[in-house]
Nucleic acid binder design. Structure first.
Lengths: 355, 355
DNA sequence: TTTAGCACTCGAAGGCCGAGAGTGCTAAAA
DNA sequence: TTTTAGCACTCTCGGCCTTCGAGTGCTAAA
């Protein structure tokens, strides 16, 4: 990558800003006029020609203005963008909302998606916090009817999994409870491997049940990011690049296809990183369906315990600054919330007590 | 409503079919040609003029073909449509898929949404089964850290609710378990009112906890249809009436606004009913945002125990026959599944047993 | 009651044209 | 050497016009 002159960087930045604002190719005269530059349009033209040469800008057709290329965006995001923070009042308002519903993880996640979509004016995705390696906290067996038993598995970190088992024959609640207590006692704090290592000593009901438990915990571990919560789909359809029906459908298909999002959420190694935030521009060559998209991804949580992913999906010409600062802020906020609920170390004094 | 002649009914049916197929105004000659009618186009024109007179058809402009009005669709749905069933092989395939994942309610619901969307080529909505009046089955309290306690509430019917409580002071797991057992013993099978009636005799930890329980059960009761699962959004965007960006956004807003869907799901009294299936055409005057939509709604479940809603959302010119038969079929299938898991009365022999 | 014939209507599609914004190049100015 | 004014050229977009064709309603004959 050629080193750009300061003026070239400046002009690249302006072109990107302007293009993000208008979604129209940016011409030299328009740029000079709008930003009251005290260089002539001819000079700007020359610089633009150079930037086009370098592959950072392109022309949709001869005699049209310039549009940033993916490379251009990448250069901008990795070297030109200046970190801005959300305004203080906004931050406080958002925090307040979160701390009002700190009891319900699902609500956080939903709220996070909503806030993210609203602040970034794009689509957002958030996954709930998920432990890397599930460890058993508590096991409960509840007789429902006949041979049907509801198994409730509580993991360290608070995740609850449930499942209906069908036994060979009815078993009294009494016995079920005893079995559940024994197994809880025995395996509390263990992960799948730990449990597997000691199943040999079990027999009868206990052995059957622990089989189910293992099965479920394996499933929990394999679920990289179970559910993905989306919001702000309409924001994205409002963008002119997704305005035709075909583009709109492709866009929506991406958002509806949970698998792709899960892949994304699972992705940890990234090419471009900004303060823990990862920016994927135009699918980075590998994800073809994502060509017209950019994605700003962050993660949150307590590394050993439970982590989740949150991100913004928008057109290439999304407002990266806003997206990045929102993702960063929410990432911190959610991490605090996770830490607080998991570690019982309240970070504020808004603690709600029994009356 | 004037009584139509047989031929008029026939022509109305053809116009609707053709319009559903092509999304283009239907002309008299086109109709005669396509269906090899042995009456002349002039005759068809006369009948169409009559149907237009009655308000069942309309012309987008003079000298254009005819398009069904909402009234036309209503007449068609309530009097002309003939019930068709899904082909046997399709039914079997679908049943099979469901019975493979009968343990996980969330998966059913997701699958139902997916099948419904696929079969009806429109958007679908499904709510999980939800008891009208939550009754307590089992209560569990699990110490996490310090003053934080995870409360797990299992309702009759298998719904599990969880919540993190913050106590005034740390309490040993031992004591928590005892309290939970006591309360479970005392209130098993009771609904909120039953529990409220007997809280007076409690004190200390038990009293505090039961307060949380009541709060949560009230919440459970007020949630008419908690989550709404959607699928097939892209189907609907593919329809020509939602092809412009403005319409597309409006359409998506409807689907994203969960509240409207919840209203719909909650709605029980309907004007048009077909064998337990309710068909809402063009918002029926009351829901303005739904003007360009039709909705086929059904419910499923075991009336006393738990019920859910499922439905298809499509443009006015959706394929009603297909939508209705799919909704009806899935409604029955899901009802069977609910009955089976709740009542332990297996309806097939595919039961999975402990090995 | 049905149908052939006919004049008329109106939207969609295609072609044409001018306006406007933009470019690159050249030569003069700084 | 760098910047800028000037200029010829390019290409899209929007408006306008025309044509085409599918469709209608009406009338009169079958």
């Amino acid at each position: 990558m050629v080193e750009l002159s300061e003026r070239q960087k400046f002009i690249l930045t302006l072109v990107i800003h302007e293009y993000i604002r208008t979604a129209q190719p940016v011409g030299s005269q328009a740029l000079v006029a709008r930003y009251h530059l005290n260089i002539s349009s001819a000079t700007v033209r020359n610089e633009m020609a150079a930037l086009t040469e370098y592959g950072l800008l392109r022309q949709p057709h001869t005699s049209a203005g310039r549009v940033p290329t993916e490379e251009g965006y990448r250069y901008f995001v990795s070297r030109l963008i200046r970190a801005t923070d959300l305004p203080d009042t906004t931050r406080r308002t958002i925090s307040h909302q979160f701390y009002q519903m700190r009891h319900d993880v699902e609500q956080w996640v939903r709220l996070a998606a909503s806030v993210l979509a609203y602040q970034s004016r794009a689509a957002s995705l958030v996954t709930p916090p998920h432990p890397e390696k599930a460890r058993l906290k508590h096991l409960e067996l509840i007789a429902t009817r006949g041979r049907q038993v509801l198994m409730v598995l509580v993991m360290v970190g608070g995740e609850v999994r449930q499942r209906i088992l069908t036994l060979n024959e009815p078993v009294a609640q009494e016995l079920l409870s005893q079995s559940a207590d024994r197994l809880t006692q025995l395996f509390q704090g263990q992960d799948v491997d730990g449990i597997r290592a000691r199943t040999a000593q079990l027999s009868g009901l206990d052995a059957d049940v622990i089989g189910w438990v293992i099965e479920d915990m394996v499933e929990a571990d394999s679920e990289v990011a179970g559910e993905v919560y989306l919001d702000g789909l309409t924001n994205v359809l409002a963008e002119p690049e997704f305005t035709g029906s075909e583009e709109a459908r492709r866009a929506l298909r991406i958002l509806e296809e949970r698998s792709l999002l899960q892949d994304l959420a699972a992705r940890t190694v990234m090419s471009n990183t900004v303060g823990g935030i990862q920016v994927l521009i135009g699918g980075e060559g590998t994800w073809d369906e994502l060509r017209p998209w950019s994605i700003v991804l962050g993660s949150y949580g307590a590394p050993g315990l439970a982590t989740g992913t949150l991100g913004v999906l928008g057109p290439l010409r999304m407002s990266y600054g806003r997206a990045i600062s929102t993702v960063r802020f929410l990432s911190g906020l959610l991490s605090d919330l996770v830490a607080e609920t998991l570690l019982d170390e309240p970070l504020t004094n808004k603690g709600e007590n029994l009356s």
